[in-house]
Design a protein around this nucleic acid. Structure first.
Length: 266
DNA sequence: TCTGGGGTCCTAGGACCC
DNA sequence: TCTGGGGTCCTAGGACCC
C-alpha cells in the first residue's frame, strides 16, 4: 500500500490485505500500471496484476484478466465484448446463490443481466439490490476512489474446535476466551461496544447467530456478562463445533456520513 | 469439497409507537 | 371489538468478499 501511495497523483483505497484501488488520471494507464507493478516488485518481491477501468467495477473485474502479473483494461467500450457472454457469477458481487436466482429469471450471462427487466430484478432482489445487479451487469457505477481511512464496524473472533464442545463449563470458558481477544481489538480503537453477536456451529455444520444490542459500554466485565447471556439462547443438547463472538462499535460521526458502502453503489 | 477466519451489507418480520 | 397507516428499532437469516 505504501508503494501505491507514492505513485504520482495516486489516490489509494484499500480493499483488503493485498488489494487496492488506485485512482489516477493519466494519458497512458498501461504504462502507469507497469510502473506500479515494478514498484511493488522492487519493494516487496511480489508480483501483482493490475486492472484498468473507467468504473471501479470494471477495474476490479479487469484485474482477473490481468492475472498473473499482467495488465488488462476494461471500459464501457469493450465491457460487453469481453464480459457479455460470460456467466453472471464472474461479476464482483454475484456468487453462487445470486447467479442461480438470476438463472431462475432467465438471466445467465452478463449481457442478459445488462438488459434484464428492472422490475423483475426488483421483484426478486428488492429495491436496492435489484437495480444494483442491473448496474453490475453493465459494469456501471461509481468511478470515485475514496481514500478515507476505513473505520471498522466491529471486530470478531471465531474458533473451530478440534473436538466438539459439550460441557457448559467448556462453552463458558470458550466464550470468555473469545471475548478477551475481541475486547483487545476493540480497546485498541478506544471505542465502546454497542452490540454483540454470538455465532454457533452445531455438529452437522448448522450455523446460527444470536445478536443483541447492549447499552454502550467499555467495561470488559459487562461485555463478557452480556456475551454469556447470549449463550443461554443456544441449544444445550447439541455438540458445538464452532463458537464466534463479534462486537459492534458505534460509528464516529465523521465516518457515518459520506461514503456509501459497496452495495448501495458508490 | 465435508468445510478456516474476519469482515460487510441487505432483507424480512415482529414489536412498538403515534 | 376490530381496524388504518406510517415510522423506527431489533433480531435472524442470507449473501458476498478477501
Amino acid at each position: 500500500m505504501a508503494t501505491l501511495r507514492v505513485q504520482p497523483g495516486a489516490i489509494v483505497q484499500v480493499l483488503g490485505w493485498d488489494e487496492a484501488f488506485v485512482g489516477v488520471e493519466t494519458a497512458d494507464p498501461e504504462a502507469y500500471a507497469r510502473r506500479i507493478q515494478q514498484g511493488v516488485l522492487d519493494r516487496t518481491r511480489l508480483h501483482c496484476s493490475v486492472g484498468i477501468g473507467d468504473t471501479l467495477v470494471r477495474a476490479k473485474v479487469a484485474t482477473g484478466f490481468g492475472k498473473p502479473r499482467g495488465v488488462f483494461r476494461l471500459t464501457a467500450e469493450n465491457w460487453l465484448e469481453v464480459m457479455g457472454d460470460r456467466p453472471t457469477i464472474e461479476l464482483w458481487g454475484v456468487g453462487s446463490k445470486i447467479s442461480r436466482r438470476l438463472a431462475g429469471l432467465g438471466v445467465t450471462t452478463v449481457a442478459e443481466l445488462a438488459e434484464a427487466d428492472p422490475d423483475a430484478l426488483v421483484a426478486e432482489f428488492g429495491p436496492r439490490m435489484g437495480p444494483w445487479y442491473a448496474e453490475l451487469g453493465r459494469g456501471d457505477g461509481s468511478a470515485v476512489v475514496d481514500d478515507t481511512p476505513w473505520v471498522a464496524r466491529g471486530h470478531s473472533r471465531e474458533t473451530t474446535y478440534q473436538q466438539d464442545l459439550t460441557e457448559p463449563s467448556q462453552i463458558e470458558a470458550a466464550v470468555r476466551e473469545l471475548a478477551a481477544h475481541v475486547l483487545d481489538d476493540v480497546a485498541a480503537e478506544g471505542r465502546p461496544v454497542i452490540g454483540l453477536t454470538l455465532k454457533v456451529r452445531y455438529a452437522p455444520f448448522v450455523t446460527k447467530v444470536f445478536t443483541k444490542k447492549i447499552p454502550s459500554t467499555s467495561d470488559r466485565a459487562v461485555v463478557v456478562e452480556r456475551a454469556l447471556e447470549l449463550v443461554g439462547r443456544m441449544d444445550p443438547d447439541r455438540p458445538i463445533r464452532l463458537l464466534g463472538l463479534r462486537a459492534e462499535m458505534p460509528m464516529p460521526d465523521d465516518a457515518r456520513e459520506g461514503h456509501t458502502p459497496t452495495r448501495g453503489g458508490w
